[in-house]
């Protein structure tokens, strides 16, 4: 057996192959080192702090070059003892769509082709919550219209997320604080997650996203609102760059009627737990067992 040992060890073979591929790749790509590195990069969860530091500073340099703006790409981790929860008061929402555009302003979505993470559904008060007859394209002079109520829908940050289950490359996962995130550099754009999501919360960059440099939000997060490349999926992250610093998500602060509530589900004295005790609360498509952390409620 010992005499049959191959002349080249597996380790050497793999190393040599990688080097050869690197050489080929750099030859093909005009020897751009960052391109080669991007091709050989590891997943976000496997990156060492030093690698992360280097990669984010490279991103910041790229954004400075492309947009002429000093950006900060954060990589903050989940705070211990925190599970984010969201609640939306359907009896207050007037359907003004301020949240939709504040979200775009905050999270650097492509302006054209347009991507909105929040979709507001207009529904008939007589019919109740009837998704098949809801209208996201309502455009009257003034809202709310007397016979309608409005239901904003975005990522439900499920505890049992079907999108995460179907991802063939584990480019999307649930963080310890409950936020379902995407590593845009690991996403292969197969869009399985989009078809798995029962809420239509995931969106695909069919074209290179366009954001004017004066509109770019320089406060970014690696797993959140940094500028996405073409051909990857994106979605709401509860404004991960804000909430991990303690701030409210942008949609909470813009809502003119205060219909949006946000907090820590593990804090028994917090506002989310209070309304879960005191109000009529439900989740969308409960029967699918996705177990959302986004709750709808009626305060009155």
């Amino acid at each position: 057996m010992g005499s049959k040992k191959p002349a080249i060890s597996r380790r050497a073979f793999v190393a040599g192959g990688t080097t050869a591929m690197t050489a080929i790749a750099s030859g093909l790509a005009g020897a751009s080192p960052s391109f080669v590195e991007q091709m050989l990069r590891q997943r976000f969860v496997e990156l060492s702090p030093e690698d992360l530091e280097r990669i984010t500073s490279e991103m910041e340099r790229d954004y400075l070059q492309k947009y002429g703006k000093e950006c900060n790409v954060g990589t903050s981790k989940a705070q211990p003892g925190v599970l984010f929860g969201y609640a939306l008061d359907l009896s207050r929402c007037v359907g003004c769509r301020r949240c939709v555009y504040a979200c775009v302003n905050e999270n650097n979505q492509s302006r054209d082709p347009q991507i909105h993470w929040i979709r507001v559904l207009q529904m008939d008060k007589e019919k109740g919550i009837e998704l098949t007859e809801s209208d996201p394209y309502y455009d009257p002079e003034l809202v709310p219209e007397p016979d309608s109520f409005y239901m904003p829908v975005a990522c439900m940050q499920c505890r049992n997320p079907p999108c995460v289950k179907v991802c063939p490359v584990e480019a999307t996962w649930q963080e310890p604080d409950g936020i379902v995130v995407i590593d845009y550099d690991w996403c292969i754009g197969c869009r399985c997650c989009m078809s798995a999501c029962p809420y239509g919360a995931r969106h695909f960059n069919w074209a290179e996203p366009t954001v004017a440099s004066e509109e770019l939000n320089p406060d970014m997060h690696y797993l959140g609102n940094r500028v996405r490349p073409k051909g990857v999926v994106e979605k709401c992250t509860f404004c991960i760059h804000r909430v991990r610093e303690g701030r409210y998500p942008a949609c909470v602060e813009i809502c003119p009627v205060g219909a949006r509530k946000f907090g820590n589900l593990l804090d028994e004295e917090g506002e989310i737990r209070y309304l879960m005790r005191e109000k009529r609360v439900f989740v969308l498509k409960e029967d699918l067992n996705t177990q959302p952390k986004f709750y709808y409620f009626y305060a009155t």
Binding site: D112, Q114, L142
Partner: peptide
Amino acid sequence: AFKPIKPLPPPVRPRFLASGASAE
């Protein structure tokens, strides 16, 4: 009583997503 306000415009319908982009 809360005064009605003007809503911001609706999202682009899927059929206009591509054409709108090319026009822009």
